[in-house]
Simulated assay, not measured.
Amino acid sequence: MSRGKKLDLQIGAEFDEGWAQVTEKRASVIVESLEPSRHQLVFHKEKRRGKPVTLVGPFSVSKDEMKELLKTLKKRLGCGGTVNEVFLEFQGDIQTKLKGLLEEMEYRFKRR
Rank of each mutant, 00 (worst) to 15 (best):
S37N: 14
S37M: 07
R38H: 03
H39R: 02
H39M: 01
H39Q: 11
Q40T: 03
Q40M: 12
Q40N: 03
Q40A: 05
Q40R: 07
Q40E: 13
L41V: 00
L41W: 03
V42P: 10
K45T: 08
K45Y: 01
K45F: 12
K47I: 07
K47Y: 08
R48I: 00
R49M: 05
R49W: 02
G50V: 04
K51Y: 11
K51E: 14
P52Q: 06
V53N: 08
T54N: 04
T54I: 13
L55W: 09
V56D: 01
V56W: 03
V56M: 10
G57W: 05
F59M: 09
S60F: 06
S60P: 05
V61Y: 03
V61W: 07
V61S: 14
S62N: 07
S62T: 05
K63T: 12
D64Y: 03
E65L: 09
E65Q: 07
E65V: 01
M66E: 06
M66W: 14
K67N: 08
K67S: 11
E68F: 07
E68P: 05
L69D: 08
K71D: 04
T72Y: 09
T72E: 01
L73G: 04
K74A: 07
K74F: 09
K75H: 01
K75C: 13
L77C: 09
G78V: 09
C79M: 00
C79V: 00
G80V: 04
G81M: 01
G81D: 14
V83R: 06
N84I: 09
F87T: 03
